[in-house]
Design a protein around this nucleic acid. Structure first.
Lengths: 131, 131
DNA sequence: CATTGACTTAAACCAGGGTTTAAGTCGTAT
DNA sequence: ATACGACTTAAACCCTGGTTTAAGTCAATG
């Protein structure tokens, strides 16, 4: 099985090595192998799992929940239903969060329009003064 | 001018009073009045400003930046251009963040579909066994 | 064979964003 | 008058999610 070092994994994922070590300590990477010298070896499978972890992070899932999810993945297919339930719930949480953001963004857009308009008027006024 | 207490303001905004005190200490509410006994009085104007602050928080703007924004609001119309620039930048940041979330959500959806399919197959298998 | 670069660990440190606590002051209802 | 609820403060505390530091190991290179 082809494996890569922590430095290569970090570069591939564009995150610091320290974060990968931290994630392992937090139980998010429970099946990382080591070489004879104790160095971590990231397999293709690990990298895929890490991409999933990053997706969950990008959608603001707490580390505690990600740890539970990973534990279920490792436990095997008997946990499919639990994982499905968790992901479905999480999806809804994310959709809610995005709805909140969109709503806030509408208010921000109103401000942008107001400021834009205000500046436009000031510019117009400047023109008039030059008539 | 009609004003409300911190308790009423907190209830209206559905956030703890402690958060409002914290925001004031952080310089987000620089023009809160007090009554004779030193109690905060929230005016309608304050509440509107607070709603703006909450919109910025909902879109993950750091307190430091919100403080700057509020300072510009108080400074007056001479800062319109700065505010416009800040809000425009912020909007783009939020859109980027939402795009990251959406992309991650697509990966999560794939998992949901896989798990759903896996469970469906198990159910089918169960049916066959009952033939 | 010494140096360099990539790696290891445990532990300390940090930032952001609040929340909680302790001790005290009012206004009002009984 | 006293007790209650809503308020005040400063300071301490907390959690999350990392990052940094110090001291050391190992493999390959000059």
């Amino acid at each position: 099985m082809k494996t890569i070092s922590i430095g290569e994994a970090a570069a591939a994922l564009r995150i610091p090595e320290s974060t990968l070590r931290y994630y392992e300590k937090q139980g998010l990477l429970p099946l990382i192998e080591r070489d004879g010298a104790g160095r971590r070896l990231f397999s293709e499978h690990q990298m895929e799992l890490l991409e999933t972890i990053l997706r969950l992070k990008h959608t603001h899932m707490p580390i505690q929940d990600i740890r539970q999810y990973i534990a279920w993945v490792i436990e095997g297919e008997s946990t499919t239903e639990l994982r499905l339930e968790m992901m479905t719930r999480h999806k809804q949480t994310v959709l809610n969060e995005m709805a909140v953001m969109e709503e806030a963004l509408r208010g921000i857009d109103i401000k942008i329009n107001r400021y834009t308009e205000r500046l436009r008027k000031k510019t117009e006024q400047g023109k008039e003064e030059n008539l």
